[in-house]
Design a protein around this nucleic acid. Sequence first.
DNA 1: ATTACTAGTCTTCGAGTAC
DNA 2: TGTACTCGAAGACTAGTAA
Lengths: 214, 214
Amino acid sequence: MDDEKLLVFLALQAGLHGSVKTSTARIAGHFRVSQQTASRKLRNLKKAGLIRLFAGPSGCTVSLAPEGARLLRADFLSLKQVFGPGTKKMLRGKIKDGLGEGRYYVSRPYYLKQFKNLLGFKPFFGTLNLIVDIAELNSFLLGLHPIKIEGFETDERSFGTIRAFKVTVQGKQQAALIMPERTAHPKNEIEVIAPTNLRKKFKLGQGRQVTLTA
Amino acid sequence: MDDEKLLVFLALQAGLHGSVKTSTARIAGHFRVSQQTASRKLRNLKKAGLIRLFAGPSGCTVSLAPEGARLLRADFLSLKQVFGPGTKKMLRGKIKDGLGEGRYYVSRPYYLKQFKNLLGFKPFFGTLNLIVDIAELNSFLLGLHPIKIEGFETDERSFGTIRAFKVTVQGKQQAALIMPERTAHPKNEIEVIAPTNLRKKFKLGQGRQVTLTA
DNA sequence: ATTACTAGTCTTCGAGTAC
DNA sequence: TGTACTCGAAGACTAGTAA
């Protein structure tokens, strides 16, 4: 029994917002593991913030925590891409006006050279900042080949390693989704670079919806 | 990285029927584990019959085996029950004419007593045999409380332990889905018992479709 | 560059048991 | 009945390295 299977099992009984009264022995029986293991796994899920758990001498009641629901939703979206009827890999995001910071670091020569070599284009000096759904983002990125853009340091500051993914913007424009390598769990904000000024080309303003495909 | 996550990762890249050329290092990088672990897990999935794998000094190409696709489909259906829009727990099956065997063992006193006590009804002496989709069945059963009907032995033969699940037939009739306890992976055939003769009540003949809800 | 074996370490499991 | 602790055994992980 892996953690995620247990989470699904609980979600099916408790629902996304409800709760279920059960026992560690019952769970153990279902997965054919020991009562001790069921108990421990349950506590682990609680510690990980995925479920809410109240356990006592009369059994335990469990409900999904928001983080647990989000995790399952991400799994669901991944599988939907596999089984869903003709769903192409796609990610929608809303434009957020950036701080002009992107223009600066995209144009650093050390990055620039790698962009050219590894992505196949010289990016416009500016980035398109998009707000996306984290679950959708994870599902979208899963299965794409990450391209590693190495970081570097100057006397003043350090520039971290970047993960880049080749994408298409609005179904037409070659581009790349980029994000810091460091963050284990991606934020809900991503940046897109392309050979041209995407804002101009597609007449995009703040709040407008953009579609990335892969 | 658990096995199932890896399978999803591969499925997203290879598709259900295609294949993908990759390397253990790339997979390892994605899940942030060692190359060795990725290699071993891949071989495990192959040994388990979930993927087809050709590995060599120039990388490896992977495709989903039918069993792997089935496993993912089961997961997908489970999650669909959680996230799907208003999908109630439901299982469809096609009637298969039984051998009259059900009539015999359902009426064994030792079973009968437990059916009454644990299911809350005295079953009609006969079973309705249904052919179902294994993935749907697994997803349906996941989350239902199994009720254990103990087996017993006579001088002539032994009667195994039965797992029973309370269900509703055609949205109206109280009933129970029963299956042998033994089998780890359920067959695609189940039996249904109810207080009344389901065949008569719903005018069911071979091949007719029946809906169970829970 | 690959895959994958071996060996040592670390994690996870379940029986026994306390409460 | 429950949950959950300890601890010895079984399994999984990574580093080093062969091919």
